[in-house]
Design a protein around this nucleic acid. Structure first.
Length: 487
RNA sequence: GCGGAAGUAGCUCAUUUGGUAGAGCGCGACCUUGCCAAGGUCGAGGUGGCCGGUUCGAGCCCGGUCUUCCGCUCCA
């Protein structure tokens, strides 16, 4: 199949046209950075999620899955650091368009005052700022900046916007009365639902370290700008696993999961040369090592999955804030001391994939436009989604060659036999070639055609999406062959 | 958030300077056909993204707004 093209804009259009992804609330002009999955997209997404869930829980005897609520006690986000790190007053310079954190801007100016020996002015300024920050007086903060004639380092002007708070967490009220104390957040990450359930799972599941807790679910971030289709959305789905380990063993497990997760992506047909590791130089407040598994998207190398060594930060924080002891008693013998390891707060190794990003990865690899010259010299083409058979939304199309002569009856019987085992699609409209092309466009890997010969010898034609090859097989073998090909 | 470009039928696009909106493909029904996008007949589908202004009259001119794409910015 020569002459393939792969264009991101065409992929986005294809996703809409064939029921994979629609813009949210499109009839009302849409909602920025929010998307809906259509009939085919929802099934593909579910298949990817199921494949991940199975590989984590069913195939690892020391990993179990949970499903925590999106709403969590507000103190969760104080403990995790999200309240402090996710919400800062910001101000923009209108001339340079440069955005500053207000406290950083004022502190930098105070430092300059100190260098000039104006210690008293520096002290007064910082005291003023702290007082205003404490009561979230944004107008006062702006006035403070203007009164001190604090300038933008780039434009050298004092032309500022109003001070605004950019909180990346969405908030809402729980209960019917909107009071300050009732404010809760939509979780900005799923991880905390695992950490707060550490003791529940460890005790009720009698889990022994090392063990993991897996979870898939929605998370929400009020991104300042969100772009690149479903790559960065306000509402997105994570698939993550927190692996609880002995302190000191984190680098061993970091390296283990790093390789394990890359191999997993390759098992979904992602070519090794399209994946790479990107080590974090600047680490987040909770991590002692972190890397991204990046994929070469149509718009460049971007994060697909994060591997983070989170140390005992999260469990220790929850222990402090909840005043509940979150520890593990390890009976195994430490070869160094000859005694049991004893009580400790476990370390955590996190693997976290963006399900929507993985969906986009699969789609960008699958989408292709093929052109070729037929035997009679004319040009032919097709649009195809080469989605791996094991995650394709529809596995098998069952097509009677004619909608008469008893062929639909045989086809429907096969449909009834197969539909309990995998997703099937039945179609008797239009010429057979046209029906094949429609299946190519939504990524159905196999088509079976029932014709007059079927009535004579109980054989059918199976047609393969990827190479358009056809072969004759027994009608009774169809289900088992497809089951074998999608496993 | 800033700058640039765009928005007409499900899709791709026409509608030359303002004068009551069209095609191809696709979609539905019927007829004909039957192994890789066949043919015929009929049909459904648009208050031109939305709101406002100028004008006798706006898809076209002006303002605002929403959304998308590209470049910055942001992304604990």
């Amino acid at each position: 199949m020569a002459n393939e093209t792969n264009n991101f804009a065409e992929l986005i259009a294809h996703c809409k046209e064939y029921g994979y992804i629609f813009q949210s609330s499109e009839i009302y002009d849409g909602l920025a950075a929010v998307y809906d999955y259509g009939q085919n997209g929802a099934q593909l997404k579910k298949n990817i999620r199921d494949y991940w869930w199975k590989s984590m829980t069913q195939l690892h005897d020391n990993i179990v899955g949970i499903d925590a609520a999106i709403f969590m006690h507000p103190t969760t986000w104080k403990a995790s650091g999200h309240v402090d790190n996710f919400s800062d007053p910001m101000i923009d310079n209108k001339d340079s368009n440069k955005r500053y954190r207000v406290d950083h801007l004022i502190e930098a100016y105070a430092e300059a005052l100190a260098l000039e020996g104006k210690k008293e002015e520096e002290f007064a300024l910082l005291k003023n700022m702290d007082a205003l920050l404490a009561v979230s007086d944004y107008a006062g903060l702006k006035q403070l900046i203007i009164d001190n004639n604090i300038k933008c380092a780039i434009s050298k002007t004092c032309n500022w916007t109003d001070v605004r708070e950019f909180n990346l967490m969405f908030s809402t009220q729980i209960g019917s009365v909107a009071e300050e104390s009732n404010t809760i957040y939509l979780r900005p990450e799923t991880a905390q639902g695992i950490f707060v359930n550490f003791l529940n799972v460890q005790k009720t599941g009698r889990m022994k370290i090392p063990f993991g807790i897996a979870q898939t679910g929605k998370a929400f971030r009020n991104e300042i700008v969100a772009r690149q289709f479903i790559f960065r959305m306000r509402e997105f789905e994570q698939m993550e696993m927190q692996f609880f380990i002995r302190p000191g063993s984190q680098m061993e497990w970091y390296n283990f999961w790093k390789e394990e997760r890359k191999r997993w992506h390759e098992s979904l047909g992602v070519p090794a040369e399209k994946l790479r590791f990107h080590d974090h130089i600047k680490l987040a407040h909770y991590a002692d090592a972190a890397l991204d598994i990046e994929f070469e998207f149509p718009f460049g190398w971007k994060e697909l999955e994060g591997i983070h060594s989170r140390t005992d930060f999260d469990l220790t924080q929850h222990q402090t804030y909840s005043k509940k002891k979150i520890q593990y008693f390890d009976n195994d013998i430490d070869p160094q001391t000859g005694k049991a390891y004893g009580n400790y707060v476990p370390y955590v190794l996190e693997t976290s994939v963006g399900l929507d990003r993985l969906f986009l990865t699969i789609m960008s690899l699958a989408y292709a436009e093929e052109k070729w010259t037929k035997e009679d010299g004319t040009e032919d083409s097709r649009v195809i989604l080469r989605i791996p058979a094991k995650i394709a939304p529809t596995k098998l199309a069952i097509l009677p060659l004619l909608k008469k002569d008893g062929l639909p009856e045989i086809a429907k019987e096969l449909m009834n036999d197969c539909k309990g085992s995998f997703m099937c699609f039945y179609e008797e409209k239009d010429a057979i070639g046209k029906r094949y092309r429609r299946m190519d466009a939504i990524g159905t890997p196999f088509c079976v055609t029932i014709d007059h010969q079927t009535k004579e010898d109980n054989t059918v034609t199976i047609r393969y999406r990827d190479d358009m090859r056809q072969e004759r097989i027994a009608l009774s073998d169809v289900k088992n062959l497809v089951l074998q090909l999608i496993s």
